[in-house]
Each structure stands twice: as C-alpha cells, then as structure tokens.
Amino acid sequence: MDRQFRSPAAPAGPRIRPAQHDTVENPARITARDVDVFYGDKQAIFDVSMDIPEKSVTAFIGPSGCGKSTFLRCFNRMNDTIDICRVLGTITMDGEDIHDPALDVVELRARVGMVFQKPNPFPKSIYDNIAYGPRIHGLVNSRAETDELVISSLKKAGLYKEVADRLDAPGTGLSGGQQQRLCIARAIATGPEVILMDEPCSALDPIATAIVEDLIHELKEQYTIIIVTHSMQQAARVSQKTAFFHLGRLIEYDTTETIFVNPREAQTEAYITGRIG
C-alpha cells in the first residue's frame, strides 16, 4: 500500500492518482443535514450536511481529531453509547429519520454494520463470532441455517479458505488481517445494507491491508460502504467519493477524482499534498 507513501511533512510532490471508476453516481442512500455533535460542552462536529450514494465507497479523510470518526459513528448511533455525547441535526436512511423514536436502535445497527479500527473479535470460536449477530436477531432457526450463513459470510469476507478446517478455533488466535476480515464477516452476517469502517486497516500490515482493500472493492457491489481512513492513498484507491474534514467541519465533499486532482478548496489541496495534517 505504501508504494506512493510520502511523509506528511514532505513538500508538495506529485499528486496521488485516484483509481479510475465509473463516474455515474448512484442515488443517495443516506442523507445528513446540519449535523452537530457535542462531547459535553465541546463541539466536535459543526453543521455537516452530505448525501451518501448507495452501493459505492465513500471515504472520510482529514487530520487526526478532525471529527471524521465521530461523524461516522452517527450513522449507526454508536455515539449513544457515550454518556456525554449529543447529536443534533437530521440523518435519514432511505428517507427514515434514524433518530425517530419509533425506529429501534437495535434494528438500525442490524442494517448498518460497523468494522472498528482495531480488530475486535469476541473471545469465542470463529463460528460463534459470525453466528453472534444472526442469533441475536433471530435470522437463523436451525444449526443447518447457521452453518450456511456462517460459511457464506466467511466466503464473502474472503476468509473461508483460510479457516475452513478450524471454525471451532478461537477468533482471537487469527492474525491481525484475518481478525479484521473476521470482523467484516461478522458484520456481513447480520445482512446489513450499509457498512461503516473506522480506519479498518490502521492496525494491519501492507499485505493484509491490500487484501482488505480488495475485499472492500468487491463488497461495494452489494453494500453501501463508508470508510474513515488516515491514508489518502487508501481513500484514492478504494473510494468513489471523498469527504475532507478539518477541525470538525466538512471542508469539501466531491468525487474522489475531483478531490485528489482538482480540489476546489485551498485547505483540501494543502492536506492532500501533505502541507497540513
């Protein structure tokens, strides 16, 4: 992954080339309007609005502490789990307000899967890790159904071949990259429509990163993916649209091609060429 890596402090060099994607934009799946997030008295996100197209990869980039992860966690209301966190504004998914009291957060999280920065398999077997979500949501009724769902999820995450003979082994015994793909398989198993990825490759080595990136590429055929990443190269490689955050504000949101080749804002240009960050 690091073929094009430059130190952020390096002077502006050749631009990162985004991968060529079809430029036809899919219809918006998720819309955010005027979202503010507060941690106690401190405001972390300021008035962010954006539309996220379905069945594509949207990348959030920006320097550390810019609020990109906080904003990502709004989409499955993970910020609810933090006592002092308040989210204002409207986020809709398929036209439904996700903060509507009539909408159950459990149901929302089944539809919006999440993959975390550090692989976090449960201290259970590989099989039970995958079966966890389907079981609590009652998606499977028999052992045979569970088997089938576990295997198909592992296959979708490209992990099945590596673990087929040891599904009963603990998930924590896998390598970091395998653990992260296990977590992706675990998220897929509940049948989500959207998958949120919070720096999924930051704890992985370049080879494991490349495998996960290929996986993201395949998954976007079926799922709407939002990925937070520290690596601009990764954003350029995997995403169709890119949003640049700085100090809690959305500075620029456009196709990845535009952001990396012809950004409108000076701040974006400064960041992607390595002058701030």
Binding site: M78, V106, L108, R109, A110, P121, I136
Partner: peptide, 9 residues
C-alpha cells in the same frame, strides 16, 4: 462496541 455495533442490546 463490537457487540453493540452488531445490534445487540
């Protein structure tokens, strides 16, 4: 977080 993120109560 992993468990809550999967929609567990």
């Amino acid at each position: 977080d992993g468990s809550l993120g999967l929609g567990a109560t």
